[in-house]
Structures are given as C-alpha cells and as structure tokens.
C-alpha cells in the first residue's frame, strides 16, 4: 500500500464525512480541492498554451506577431484592479467576437442542420415506422411548445401540450441517467476504499 493510496483514501473519507454533517475535515478537503484544481489548471495552461504559443515563438522564432495575443492577455489582467476594467474590455471584446463568429457556422452545422437532416429521413421499415413517426411528432410538438411568438391556443396549444409530455419524459430520462452516473462514481470510490486501501475485496 503506497503513500498515494493512503492520501487518496484520507481525502475520500474527508469528503464522505459531509454525509454526517459539515465538519473541518470536509472543509479542509473542499479548500484543498479548490486550490489544487486552480493550480493544476494554471500549470497546464502555462505548459500547453503559453509556452508553445507565446514563449517559444517570441523568444526562439522571433515571431513578433504573438505580441498581439500577449498584449490582449495582459490587458485582460488589468481587470484585477477596479480602474483596469476599461482596458480589460478590449480583450473581452476580442474573445467574445471570435467565439460569436465561430458559433455562427459551428452551431448551424452541428446543431441545426445535423438535427434537421436526421429528422427529415424516410421512416424505418416495419414496426420501426411507429417509432420514427413518434420521434417526428415529438420533435414538432416540442418545437410548437418553444414557439412563443403566438399564444398557445387551439391546435398550437394542443400540440404544445403534447410537447410538454415529451419534454417531461426527456427530463425524467436525463435525471435517471445523471443519478446512475453519480451512483457509478460512488461505487468506484467505495471499491477503491475496500479493494485498493483496505484489501477487503479481491483485486480486478
């Protein structure tokens, strides 16, 4: 049993202690997690983004063009001081502008066109046609529910009502799926404690 296993087991128990009530062990783990996660993220950004995209091109390849993103990045840091908000706005404007520009073709291709293309296909043969028809009805009725430019009355209102039922089933499925994903993680942690730490369970 290594030091790594003991530390990981201690931290796992610290977090699970919250199930009893909020306590110093949980708060220690919580604060450690925040600091460690932020520190790791910074280190990764330094090694994987700033060194290959700024440090190396500037100091080794003498590419002066990287001074532009460097300047925009440094301007972003001005936001740390109240009076620097105006300077940081330029970096924010650039960043938001780029991602808005990327979003237009990106969302059109990946979300709108791809989903419409899948929806506008011939029905599956045999009994599969019933399911295909249900998917089409669900799609149209949920879209009817999300169409707020007209009041939900008459045929539109009835369609929107059916759309709500489809939405509720989808939300229930998502909820059940999320719970099961969390339970899988819980089982993995309990397995770690019983197998890797305490050796109560046999190995894989």
């Amino acid at each position: 049993m290594t030091l790594q296993t003991w530390i990981a087991a201690f931290l796992t128990l610290c977090v699970f202690s919250f199930l009893y009530k909020d306590n110093p062990f949980y708060r220690f783990a919580e604060h450690l997690f925040v600091g460690a996660a932020a520190g790791y993220l910074l280190a990764v950004q330094w090694q994987n983004v700033l060194i290959p995209n700024v440090w190396t091109p500037l100091l080794h390849d003498h590419k002066l063009v990287v001074l532009i993103p460097l300047a925009l990045g440094l301007m972003m840091l001005a936001r740390a001081w109240d009076k620097g908000a105006g300077i940081a706005r330029w970096s924010l404007a650039f960043y938001v502008g780029i991602y808005s520009g990327v979003a237009i073709p990106g969302y059109m291709q990946a979300q709108i066109f791809a989903q419409l293309a899948d929806a506008a296909k011939p029905f599956a043969p045999g009994w599969g046609a019933v399911n295909s028809a249900l998917v089409l009805v669900g799609l149209l009725t949920v879209l009817a529910y999300f169409f707020f430019s007209a009041p939900h009355k008459g045929v539109h209102g009835a369609g929107a009502r059916v759309g709500i039922y489809f939405l509720m089933v989808a939300f229930g499925a998502s909820f059940g799926y999320t719970v099961m994903a969390r339970v899988s993680l819980l089982i993995a942690r309990v397995q770690f404690l019983l197998r890797d730490w305490l050796h109560v369970l046999p190995g894989p």
Binding site: L41, L42, Q45, W46, V49, L50, N53, V54, V66, I68, P69, L70, L72, G73, L74, M76, L77, R79, A80, A88, S91, F94, Y95, I98, Y99
Partner: peptide, 12 residues
C-alpha cells in the same frame, strides 16, 4: 490567439 487570451483569463 483566443487560447492565449483564455489562458490569461484563467490567470485573472
């Protein structure tokens, strides 16, 4: 360039 700005946003 946006990756660089994003890295500085994380530093911020």
């Amino acid at each position: 360039w946006t990756l660089v700005v994003y890295a500085f946003a994380l530093i911020l």
